[in-house]
């Protein structure tokens, strides 16, 4: 029974990932990332409003796509970030991974909710209903529920170290389960609606649609990165403040 806890590695990664180090190297990143994201949003929005064609069926409503698709992409990307953080928490027990996972959950939930919201806005004029039990929308909804459950679990714990590892287990189980959910929902969908309303993307997307879509997707991803870094920094500061106030309480007790 030999427990060699916390074998201290000192490679470049663990040095970069030390919370204190993270605070110092991430600080100068926030502003450029935010500016770049804003710039891409400006370009992307201009392109999607003025330089891309109307749809011959959906008219101007097709422009919702430029917001909807990036959000749908982020709803899954953020879960991927959380799953990687969960591995970091469980395998390497890294405090920065805890913080990354915790900071990503609410962001992921918001992007997923936005994807559903824009999907509903888009669905109203095109399908004639806000909500359709379509395969993609349904599995996105289930994904949102998983995000909300994970956030609830984070909030239920006082001890954040323990919370991180417990949430990591749930996150990974969710990550394994999401493809199964997707598959089952698709199966269920074809069972009840032989003819799908929303057929996958058209044969070829013209460049005038693809370019703004890509730019918007990058802009949203950068927005996520910016918010993620800021909220990780906030979480680290919050934990430090908590430690300080606990120490203050202890020393007040000693006096």
């Amino acid at each position: 029974m030999t427990l060699d806890a916390a074998a201290k590695k000192s490679n470049w990664f663990s040095r970069l990932a030390h919370p204190g180090q993270f605070l110092s190297w991430s600080r100068p990143l926030v502003l450029p990332l935010a500016v770049l994201s804003a710039l891409l949003f400006a370009i992307g929005l201009w392109l999607s409003f003025f330089a891309s064609p109307e749809d011959y069926q959906m008219g101007d409503m097709v422009r919702v796509m430029y917001v909807h698709v990036p959000n749908a992409w982020l709803s899954q990307f953020v879960y991927g970030v959380m799953a990687v953080s969960a591995l970091g928490t469980l395998v390497w027990r890294h405090p920065l991974a805890d913080v990354a996972g915790k900071a990503a959950a609410p962001l992921g939930a918001v992007f997923t909710a936005l994807a559903l919201y824009t999907g509903a806005l888009w669905g109203r004029p095109t399908w004639g209903t806000f909500w359709e039990w379509d395969g993609r929308m349904t599995s996105t909804l289930v994904l949102l529920l998983i995000y909300l459950g994970i956030i609830a679990l984070w909030r239920a714990f006082d001890d954040q170290l323990r919370a991180a590892r417990i949430v990591a287990i749930v996150t990974l189980v969710g990550a394994i389960n999401i493809p199964v959910i997707k598959f089952s929902v698709d199966w269920w969908n074809t069972l009840h609606q032989p003819a799908s309303i929303f057929t996958a993307k058209g044969p070829r997307m013209p460049l005038s649609i693809l370019t703004p879509l890509l730019i918007m997707a990058i802009a949203f991803t950068l927005l996520f990165l910016t918010l993620h870094i800021v909220s990780m920094r906030t979480e680290i500061f919050r934990r430090r403040a908590e430690t300080l106030s606990r120490q203050a309480a202890l020393s007040a007790e000693a006096n």
């Binding site: 029974m1 030999t2 427990l3 060699d4 806890a5 916390a6």
Partner: peptide, 23 residues
């Protein structure tokens, strides 16, 4: 007892059969 994971250091229970089932 192996319930709380130490932050550093080692705990070794030796003797008998080579590293007999500690728990």
């Amino acid at each position: 007892a192996g319930v709380v994971r130490p932050e550093a250091g080692s705990i070794a229970l030796t003797g008998g059969e080579a590293d007999a089932g500690s728990m």
